[in-house]
Amino acid sequence: MSSFSSNTYDYQSSPNQFGTDPVAVSDFLARVNLGPGQLREIAGLGAVDYLRLDEQVVTPGALPSRGGFDDLCYGTGTTYLAGLTFGGVWGLMEGLHGHSPNFKLRLNTILNSVTRRGPFIGNSCGILGIYFSTKS
């Protein structure tokens, strides 16, 4: 006989230790309705205006941009990922060309080559992306 099964307790139907019925999170959030004015008051901002991102100027073109920082992040990220992919494939090809007697050594050779070439090329391309994004 298990003493645990005889001492079951229904948490949903009985009140908690404070004598009140439990409230679900969804019920609590349904009663909370905060607008921008109330949020400013809670945060202590007073009459400070807030940013309206939907009215921000976006440059037209094939790749719309919000400004220099957006271009910096996009350019750095894409060149880093492209370099990481290229370096990983280079390391994979280099590791596959190695001659190892068994599977474990071959796999180790491949993983060492991928982790040697991938991050090196990715970081180098990311630095070039930062450089060219700040020059324009």
Rank of each mutant, 00 (worst) to 15 (best):
L39R: 08
P60A: 14
L51A: 13
L34A: 08
Q56M: 12
R31L: 07
R40T: 05
V48H: 08
V48Q: 05
E41C: 09
L39E: 12
L51E: 10
Q38Y: 00
V57H: 10
L39G: 05
G35D: 06
P60S: 02
G46S: 05
E55G: 02
T59N: 01
G37W: 11
Q38E: 11
N33W: 03
I42M: 12
V32M: 05
V57I: 04
V58D: 01
A30Y: 04
L34N: 02
L53T: 10
P36G: 00
N33G: 01
P36A: 02
R40C: 02
A47M: 07
A47R: 10
V48T: 03
I42Q: 15
P60R: 02
I42L: 08
L39Y: 08
T59Y: 02
V32F: 00
L39C: 15
E55A: 08
A43W: 12
E55H: 10
P36V: 01
G37S: 13
L29H: 11
N33M: 01
L51V: 14
V57W: 03
L39A: 15
D49Q: 10
R52I: 13
T59S: 13
V58W: 00
R52V: 13
L29C: 07
L29W: 04
V32H: 00
A47G: 04
P36K: 02
L34T: 04
V32T: 07
L39H: 06
L39V: 15
Q38A: 13
N33E: 10
Y50V: 14
P36D: 04
G44M: 05
D49C: 07
E41G: 08
L34D: 01
G35P: 10
G35I: 04
G46E: 07
L34H: 02
A43T: 15
E41L: 12
N33Y: 01
